[in-house]
Computed example of a mutant assay.
Amino acid sequence: MYFRHSNEMWNEFPDLVPGALFVEGITVDVAITDRIAKFHAIAEKRLTGSSEGEMPEIQAWRRTFSKMGLKPTQYRCASEALLRRFRQEKSLPLLHPLVDLCNAISIAFAVPIAVFDLAKISGDLEVRHATGSETYLTFAGETEHPEPREVIFADGADQAHARRWTNRQSGLSAVRDDTRSVLIVAEAMHEAAGGDVPGLVATLVAELTAVWSIQAKTKVLSCSSPRFDL
């Protein structure tokens, strides 16, 4: 199995810097309260100086959404949505230790992070434009079909595991209590992404090692090296 962005995506979005991690051995019986608290504190400090919409990481994704023909204040990238909720509620909902940790790191870096249960993905996973025939399962259990040319995470069975790129993941491959193997993807577009994404990946590796005592396989992708073999 491999993960990649299509050639067309690289041509349209040359500023993209993605980081990917493959992890096996995830469990739910771990304590992460103190670990997520330190990342929440970083996010809170950043938000005292400016709103999430003023952060360069978020502004870059807003420009990307506009380029895709989406209204950026209607469809927000995942990190902006999390930051917005965190600013309003001073907390984030607790869902699963791995998801909670990734969400905390996401708001600290202001970079969207997706986590996919690999057991629910058929074949390879590619970020590409939709044909309109793919299926997407909502968290409510409803089936949708992405619009033609919409950016999605698509697997070999034409299942869309995320819609509108970094806007919303699918309920199909969401992390659950029985999840053991995952693909984690972080994507950034801002000017400093070339340094920030490797830093984010290193942070994730350190936390995964400390919490689960597992070793992650990682790669920062590029146009010249776009494929991550799991």
Rank of each mutant, 00 (worst) to 15 (best):
M1H: 06
F3E: 00
R4I: 05
R4Y: 03
H5P: 05
E8L: 07
E8H: 10
W10A: 02
N11E: 11
L21P: 04
L21G: 03
L21M: 07
E24V: 13
E24A: 12
D29T: 10
A31L: 14
A31Q: 14
I32W: 15
R35S: 05
A37K: 15
F39Y: 14
F39V: 14
I42K: 05
E44A: 15
E44K: 11
E44M: 13
K45D: 07
S51K: 15
S51E: 15
M55S: 12
P56F: 13
P56W: 14
W61F: 15
R62S: 15
F65K: 13
L70G: 15
P72M: 14
T73L: 13
Q74K: 13
Y75S: 13
R76S: 14
R76I: 15
C77H: 12
A78M: 08
S79T: 11
E80M: 11
A81V: 05
A81K: 06
A81M: 07
R84A: 01
R85I: 02
F86G: 00
R87C: 04
E89S: 11
E89G: 09
K90S: 03
S91Y: 13
L92Y: 11
L95R: 06
H96M: 12
L101V: 08
N103D: 11
N103I: 11
N103W: 13
I105H: 06
I107S: 01
A108L: 07
A108H: 07
A110S: 01
V111L: 06
V111M: 07
I113N: 05
I113T: 05
V115H: 12
V115Y: 10
F116E: 04
D117I: 04
L118S: 03
D124K: 04
H129K: 12
H129I: 06
T131H: 10
T131Q: 08
T131M: 06
T131V: 06
E134S: 02
T135S: 05
Y136V: 01
E144T: 04
E144I: 04
P146H: 07
P146Y: 08
P148L: 00
P148K: 00
P148W: 01
P148V: 01
R149K: 12
R149C: 10
R149M: 12
E150T: 03
E150P: 04
V151E: 03
F153I: 04
D155Q: 08
D155P: 09
Q159H: 13
Q159N: 11
H161W: 04
R163F: 01
R164S: 08
W165R: 04
T166W: 09
T166C: 08
N167R: 12
Q169Y: 10
Q169L: 08
Q169D: 05
G171V: 01
S173I: 06
R176A: 02
R176K: 05
R180C: 01
I184R: 03
A186Q: 08
E187D: 12
A188P: 07
A193M: 13
G194I: 06
G195H: 09
D196N: 11
D196P: 10
V197C: 09
V201M: 05
T203M: 02
T203G: 00
L204H: 07
E207C: 07
A210S: 02
V211S: 04
W212Y: 00
S213I: 13
I214P: 03
I214M: 03
A216Q: 02
T218Y: 06
V220I: 02
S222D: 08
R227S: 06
R227F: 09
F228C: 02
